[in-house]
Design a protein around this nucleic acid. Structure first.
Lengths: 210, 210, 210, 210
DNA sequence: GATGAATGAGCATTCATTCAT
DNA sequence: CATGAATGAATGCTCATTCAT
């Protein structure tokens, strides 16, 4: 009836759209993707009607939030890749950053339902491919640098990221954050090149984690 | 396991109770703690009424499943402690086992709602204390053995456990399991005594993670 | 299958039956006829099964309680009639007594549902007829004595009774009881022979109130 | 009437609200306050959802209906007070009118549950106070006029009202109405100043009936 | 016969989505 | 276009009644 991806939205409509995504981001991160649509609308300062005009159903909203997030992560990956002196340090930076990106792939990983929604979406699949390409090159590079253990693949790293995106509830926010940072550090140590445990199975590649 | 302040349940009733918990365990692990009660009843092969007779509401069921799971984890911890030659190997075994315990503390960690329900329950709080006591002694022991890095506390290990208890959805179950096992191995390497990254903050103790 | 009105119940079964009716009486009076059957069973100190063996469904129980009560009221009416010196004083005594009989016809008058159940029951219809016959003769007698205003019929008196059987909730039980007694007294004064308000309509007879 | 702290309702919403209250009034009067919400919605010509949007639960609906009714009774009392030549005739008119107000305080008096709900509601408590103030002044006035017996208080009159608000089920609506009118007349005669029965207890004041 | 467990239909309430204003 | 009202399907929970122990 109206969806015309070409026509750019009017300024105020675009503002609404952005507010909605921002609100949904925050609320999804806090309470998961099942919160009442009305609550999201309220948080965004609009009526439900407006929300539904912009996003025909919950799926569409989840998809939009996911696109928004994947884009950020991909851009972070590219930035890290471009700005850091070594692939290893780029990887390390990324892992730490993922802590702040909170929600991020969380949506994709958190609930079966969301996972299935996103798995189908071509935009998201494409973003994911981009991201994996970045990670893959960092992994290979860091292994050649001698920093990263050679028995891991890009898939392994992606999976570690995914673990970290999970916010563990805690009464003390401060502790929760510190704990995540510590976990990242432990993982980084576990990833470094050194004689350690032998990993079971085989290095996970991009295709393993689809 | 099931504390029995009243008359012990009739044989058939006990069987039903067990079936319900088993079904709820499986379904919670798969779909989270919000699945329709009716679905749980169906999976357990009973009517909703029966489910509600045994567990007056969803909270009660969540609590019961959690008690069941915490008990298993605690018992595993004790067994590992008793049977393994070193504290370190007991810890390692526990970490690997947690992979199989799936759900376990997952409930507690997964959804804010469940977390809040369980945080109040005295039985569960007690089980948690027991478990932390075990982990604490393993951590101290493994540090004295020289296997475990000394800048971590029982709280850090508990948090790592919690991360792993999150099942990451994947189309290929096989890969999902392998990935978790590999993640565990990487973490174990990250935990070993060796010059590595300096951890931010301070070692997390039992009180930090309440 | 078993209901054999002839075979007298075994002693213990009869005791159960009586306990159930007594419990139901009390609970119906307090909370109306919709209380859970289980609650009644508990108050009677038996299992639900026993309750249902004795009374195949709620209707049957309501009927039994009503029969029990109507019988008491009828017997009270007969006793008053036999023992009091005048018909008027017998009527007065009855009105006051109805206050104590609490529940009594309340069931019949209270809820549409109960009313319809009881209207069909031959035993109850018969008891009601007996009662009206008594009242009718008291009314006529009291009018001949010159105590009772002549523009009322047995139906009017029955309706006044019905009003009084309604327990008005109040925090202060003491006040509730006093108030009912005072209301009765006011009504009695209103019934006495004396030039007063002209009553609308016509004297209500037994057939008017069916 | 409907206090309007927020934005006034949209025209259609207000119409719905009124229809719902009217429907609830009628149905509560007929079947008591436990009827299925769906039935009320149907009678009001709206979906359940609409009903729940306006009244978050059954309690809220009961409260709203009660406010509506108490307001009418209070307004009737004021009108009678203003328009009738004597306090006595105002009282008499009120007693007769209460017959038509059917439901009115019935809700408050009928079921324990409703009673408890309403006892807490400040709006209703205030309305009740207003009403009692009116009645009190009529009672005093009528006593000074020499029409009303002096051994009754406003509380006694209120309790008589309450009795009359109880609709007695009957197959013949016509008779039921006539009977109530006759009962009122009898009570009025009972209330008139004349040597009659001595009332037990003491005159009930406004505080006695809380 | 008594008990209390099991069943499932029924009602309260919530929330995604549609549509009148 | 934005809003928030209306709808009704979905789901939690209760309770009358039946039936295994």
């Amino acid at each position: 009836m109206s969806a015309d991806p070409q026509t750019p939205l009017r300024a105020d409509a675009q503002r609404n759209r952005d507010q909605i995504i921002a609100a949904a981001r925050a609320i999804f991160a806090e309470h998961g993707p099942e919160v009442p649509m009305e609550e999201i609308a309220r948080a965004a300062g609009v009526g439900v009607g407006t929300l539904y005009r912009r996003f025909p159903d919950r799926e569409a909203l989840i998809r939009a939030v996911a696109v928004d997030n994947f884009t950020r992560v991909r851009d972070d990956a590219r930035a890290a890749s471009a700005e850091e002196p070594t692939c290893w340090s780029a990887l390390v930076r990324l892992l730490y950053q993922s802590v702040d990106l909170q929600l991020s792939i969380q949506l994709a990983m958190l609930s079966i339902r969301a996972y299935e929604i996103l798995r189908e979406d071509p935009t998201i699949v494409a973003l994911r491919e981009d991201l994996l390409t970045e990670v893959e090159s960092l992994v290979t590079g860091a292994q050649q640098e001698g920093h990263l253990r050679t028995d891991v693949g890009a898939g392994d790293v992606a999976m570690l990221f995914a673990l970290l995106l999970r916010r563990i509830p805690s009464r003390k926010k401060h502790i929760a954050e510190m704990s995540t940072a510590r976990n990242v550090a432990i993982m980084i140590d576990g990833l470094q090149s050194h004689p350690g445990t032998e990993l079971p199975g085989h290095p996970l590649g991009r295709d393993d984690i689809h």
